[in-house]
Design a binder for these strands. Structure first.
Lengths: 138, 138
DNA sequence: TACTAAATGAGAATGATTCTCTTCTAAGAC
DNA sequence: GTCTTAGAAGAGAATCATTCTCATTTAGTA
């Protein structure tokens, strides 16, 4: 996704298009590894040494608010970010701290069907996400 | 679970039985809401005002290492803890920050069967956990 | 081109967690 | 029951991740 496309995404969300925001969203898409704020800061420092840490945190928050990003569920401590807007699942490797997206429409349908029939007492489901832990083979 | 049972659990894991450890694990079981370290500290301060914050963090870490607790997957920032040792799923209410355990053996079998047949390319599955977000009705 | 509300930069502040060093104690040996 | 000691705890400093504050800059509209 190039800068023009990113700018369009921002506009579409009613957000001002600033070089910092383009850089930050671009970094996340390029890194493509559910990065932490620190990963993102390190990455953009190369081409944008003047973007401040506070700005990165504020921009990330505004992206989450505007549904351009989602925070990844991890075991706490440090936030990680996910640019994929549509629902998907995650593969976690605890050894390497690597998180990969996992999409499986057949399984989605299976689970959605199951809960349409069964439901959960006293609970209205809004989203279902699988977190699969294990090991990557490479 | 009373103090004797907690002590037995600690012994069974080869851990020294100390009043602090009994108090901390007891608090988590009593709170029964995937508490943060701060929640736990506040709770045990009532009956154990001298247990230090550093101790609580160290004890929590040792419980995780010894499989007495698991860290809950959340969207980062603050760690929460889960005393249930066997696999289960979680219901998340983002409005209230409430997390409830969800067990569904039928669904477990369905998903395990599915992955036994299908598998995931380049990935060895170790555990599958559902994270269901939505709203509690009370 | 001018204007201004929104965004950014920079660094201080905050909160959550980890670290360090001294003191205490659980549990094993006798 | 006493002694010993490795492991645990207490206390507070240190670190880290994130948030806050205020002055300055700027995107986008008129």
């Amino acid at each position: 996704m190039n800068q023009v496309e990113i700018a369009e995404k921002l506009s579409a969300k009613g957000m001002r298009v600033t070089p910092q925001r383009i850089a930050i969203l671009g970094a996340i898409l390029k890194l493509n590894n559910h990065p932490t704020a620190e990963n993102i800061i390190e990455y953009i420092k190369i081409n944008h040494p003047n973007i401040s840490i506070g700005t990165v945190y504020k921009v990330l928050d505004s992206f989450v608010e505007n549904h351009l990003l989602k925070k990844v569920k991890t075991e706490g401590g440090i936030m990680r970010y996910d640019p994929l807007p549509f629902n998907h699942h995650h593969l976690y490797c605890e050894e390497t701290d690597r998180i990969e997206d996992y999409e499986d429409q057949t399984l989605d349908e299976l689970i959605i069907d199951y809960f349409e029939k069964k439901g959960i007492k006293n609970f209205t489901i809004q989203n279902i996400q699988l977190h699969i832990t294990g090991k990557f083979k490479h």
